[in-house]
């Protein structure tokens, strides 16, 4: 086995091992590893930066959504309030008008009733006179006696009262 026979190459192999390993160590420690470390760190920062940004944007979107919903709710509440107010107003106005109308109507009815009453009592007066005249004429013609005016009125009043 050359590994145990070529003893004279041992020093040379160890020498070159140390030299080449030393060179590689230097290159790794000074160039390759710092570069790799910075690349990985940069990526790490970038990725977490992006994630943070996305999370912040999400937060903002959520806030906007909350605001929007609040605005909607507010608008709805104020619309309901406005609606109620106008409904109340309408109700009040129509009630007032109704009341005015009622008043007017009852006044007219009153006037009409008064007129009717007046006409009736006038008519009654006329009927009484006529009845008196008829009764006077009838008694004078049939009985040939004159009845006093007072008696006549009394009898007519009684007859009319019975009718009423």
């Amino acid at each position: 086995m050359p590994q145990f026979e070529q003893i004279d190459t041992f020093v040379g192999q160890i020498f070159w091992l140390i030299v080449t390993f030393g060179v590689l160590y230097f290159l790794m420690a000074k160039v390759a590893l710092p570069r790799l470390a910075s690349i990985l760190e940069e990526r790490e920062n970038r990725v977490s930066g992006d994630l943070e940004k996305a999370e912040r944007l999400k937060q903002e979107a959520e806030e906007v959504l909350t605001d929007y919903q609040k605005a909607i709710a507010d608008a709805r509440a104020s619309a309901v309030a406005a609606l109620k107010e106008s409904a109340d107003e309408i109700a009040a106005t129509s009630a007032k008008r109704q009341a005015a109308f009622d008043a007017q109507l009852s006044e007219k009815v009153q006037i009409a009733e008064d007129k009717i009453n007046a006409a009736r009592s006038e008519a009654m007066g006329h009927i009484k006179n006529v009845a008196k005249d008829v009764a006077a004429a009838a008694t004078s013609k049939l009985l040939d006696t004159d009845v006093t005016d007072a008696k006549l009125s009394k009898a007519v009043d009684e007859a009319l009262g019975e009718q009423n």
């Binding site: 994630l51 959504l65 929007y68």
Partner: peptide, 19 residues
């Protein structure tokens, strides 16, 4: 009713997974 609540929670889920 606003519908985009679900898309926001979806985004939230994905963000958490990425993290």
């Amino acid at each position: 009713e606003p519908e985009d609540r679900s898309s926001l929670t979806d985004l939230d889920k994905r963000l958490r997974a990425a993290r």
